[in-house]
């Protein structure tokens, strides 16, 4: 198992190196940042000085190496637009996105699995059919439309929930949280539903399909034939087997929750890294874009790694180094 983990970590590192190359290539090929930074009244000397300060005059491999070194330390240089270190800006913005993604992820996971199991067990029931029909909306409507509809209904018409921003936040040693104030929590509701709805319906449909498949298996019949309670058959025997394939998709989906937060953050003007990225694109703020790219890929790769390791925890058949017999 240790060999497997080392191999997976190694593969992850290669992926990150390649993404780093792409991020770095943006510096070279997407416009000249010096033009943007110095404005109209610049002299050749100003340009040279800035190029030197940003390290743009060095050879390509040296620049890439320096970029990697710096990036590994979390240093992505200065934002072209704000003139502040990108890492500071990201750290400032990250809590908003992570809190939003966490709430959406938990919502999608628990409601998705719950409804998936329900619709599988009661697959002929009216309620289950209704849920399945409604879930089509979640799968087929684009995120921004759902966000706008929710804002229209709950903010404009009913006036229950705020339509933009995080509400009041509390600063806990550099981590701003919206969990501790009423307005912060209220502000979380609509964006997290918007962000998580697609994943929720996807997980639900996936769990349902897998569960129906598992419920047809011999070991479920055998569990029934041994007189186990329905609850034990459904949750102890069936759900655990259902979760094995569901974990992969769910893991990838949680990664995309963070990545696709861009749209939700734009609709709700949520001050997270997604909104930061959109603004960075408009201003060709390449250090911010590169840092965002690296951040998202680190999260994706990290989540994938965790998912692979979770397999081991759930499915004993994968623990190949365990020989037959022997206790735990």
């Amino acid at each position: 198992m240790l060999a497997y983990v080392i191999r997976r970590v190694f593969q992850s590192a290669i992926v990150l190196l390649i993404v780093g190359l792409v991020a770095f290539a943006m510096f070279r090929f997407v416009g000249d940042p010096v033009d943007n930074m110095l404005g109209q009244e610049r002299t050749q000397a100003d340009i040279e000085r800035l190029r030197d300060r940003l390290g743009l005059d060095l050879p390509f491999p040296v620049q890439y190496w320096r970029f990697l070194q710096e990036a590994a330390q979390g240093n992505f240089g200065l934002s072209y637009r704000q003139g502040r270190p990108v890492s500071d800006i990201l750290i400032e913005r990250a809590p908003a996105t992570l809190e939003l993604a966490a709430v959406s992820g938990v919502l999608a996971l628990f409601v998705g699995i719950g409804l998936g199991v329900f619709t599988a067990i009661r697959r002929r029931g009216t309620a289950a059919n209704l849920i399945m029909t409604v879930s089509l909306i979640g799968v087929s409507l684009p995120t921004f439309l759902i966000g706008i509809l929710l804002i229209y209904l709950f903010s404009v018409e009913l006036g229950w929930l705020p339509s933009f921003g995080r509400g009041e936040v509390v600063d806990l040693g550099g981590w701003t949280t919206g969990f501790l104030t009423i307005s912060g929590l209220k502000a979380l509701i609509l964006p997290s539903i918007t962000l998580g709805l697609y994943q929720m319906t996807l997980i639900m449909r996936l769990v349902r399909t897998e569960m129906l498949e598992v419920l047809r298996q011999d070991y479920i019949r055998f569990a029934r034939a041994r007189g186990l309670r329905e609850r034990s058959v459904n949750f102890r025997h069936a759900l655990k087997n259902t979760l094995v394939p569901v974990i992969t998709i769910t893991g990838l989906q949680l990664g995309s929750i963070i990545a696709f937060a861009i749209i939700t953050e734009t609709v709700f003007q949520w001050p997270g890294v997604g909104l930061l990225f959109i603004n960075a694109i408009q201003f060709v703020d390449i250090p911010v874009m590169a840092a965002y790219l690296m951040l998202i890929s680190v999260m994706f790769v990290g989540i994938n790694l965790i998912v692979d390791l979770l397999y081991f925890a759930i499915d004993p058949r994968l623990r190949v180094d365990r020989t037959g017999g022997g206790g735990k």
């Binding site: 298996q217 011999d218 070991y219 019949r221 055998f222 034939a225 655990k240 087997n241 094995v244 759930i314």
Partner: peptide, 15 residues
């Protein structure tokens, strides 16, 4: 008690 045909599939692989 009941015994099924295929012992490979009648035991829950995760328990």
């Amino acid at each position: 008690g009941m015994i099924f045909q295929d012992p490979l599939t009648s035991l829950n692989p995760l328990l």
